[in-house]
Write a protein that binds this DNA or RNA. Structure first.
Lengths: 160, 160
DNA sequence: TTGGCTGAGTCTGTCAAGCAGACTTATCCT
DNA sequence: AGGATAAGTCTGCTTGACAGACTCAGCCAA
């Protein structure tokens, strides 16, 4: 079967949504840091020792995440110690939950462990149900991946 | 407000779902490559020139994605040329659509462009509706991010 | 049959980033 | 005064990214 070249070839990638997201999330460590904050580990030393990140890299990543508005510094003080900082999700950071849950869901299907999943997204409180993500469309359907295509929108630029 | 240390500190990260996913997706270029394949750009030169990836890096990433089972090689032949390879998503690759859509959705909210989104996930065929992802739980709710927590599952290992 | 074109790579040298481990700083407690 | 600790900074080594040149195989036109 011979394929014709994709229509996407006519569109520029310079302002691509994925590129701009990868500027923030596209490296080995950033998502590890976010995972720690998502599970409630908020202090520099705790994040570093659990995630196994080199200190320098953690310093740099935390600064970048703060600058991008995904986390913020929050002072805390343990009894009998001086004030220190911990790191918490902002609303923008919290709104990455669907990305995180989608990744966990994918990995639980395609990279399963013998013992079952180590991490389960759960609805807090009385419900306690397992949380997942699903594709849905304006028309009220739940399309499968094969039924979805990526179309150029108003911000798409023609290719030079 | 003083916080007690998170319960997550008791659990190991050695087999963490996010870590294992980041082994595959956690770098600057892999998701760019996947984006190209998702939008229908499947040939080495096309991917390279659109995504701006160094050739060597693209070679290495394609090989890794094939080995991980996210894409596969598919021979093609243009009229009057010899046979070459193009790269297509496997089912595992296609099932990353929720992750991709979740990222696009997040970026459209928090990194918007003046002109509007450049890339719109769309339900193919008659419907043509815009596709999004939503959190949902076993109990039939649609929890907000703040209502979700990550709990240790059966595969979680206590920390050494 | 020779020479040129093209897609899909490989090779080479340079430079930035990641990394481990030691060192620093500020504040608290005893 | 001395010791403990969280959160870094500093140093030198190694790995990976990168640009640009080169290779290779099959096809075409002359």
């Amino acid at each position: 079967m011979t394929e014709q070249p994709s229509a996407a070839m006519n569109w520029s990638t310079e302002n691509c949504t994925i590129s701009r997201t990868m500027e923030i999330l596209g490296d080995k460590w950033t998502f590890h840091v976010l995972r720690e904050v998502f599970v409630g580990v908020r202090r520099f030393e705790d994040i570093r020792s659990r995630a196994g990140i080199p200190r320098q890299v953690l310093t740099e990543r935390l600064a970048a995440l703060i600058e991008r508005g995904l986390i913020r510094r929050h002072p805390y003080r343990l009894p009998g110690q001086r004030e220190r900082s911990e790191y918490r999700l902002t609303q923008a950071g919290l709104d990455l939950y669907p990305v995180l849950v989608a990744m966990i869901q994918w990995a639980d299907q395609y990279l399963p462990l013998d013992d079952g999943p180590p991490l389960i997204p759960t609805h807090r409180g009385d419900c306690g149900g397992k949380v997942s993500v699903a594709l849905q469309c304006d028309g009220g359907h739940e399309p499968t991946p094969r039924e979805v295509s990526l179309q150029p929108g108003p911000g798409a630029k023609p290719r030079s």
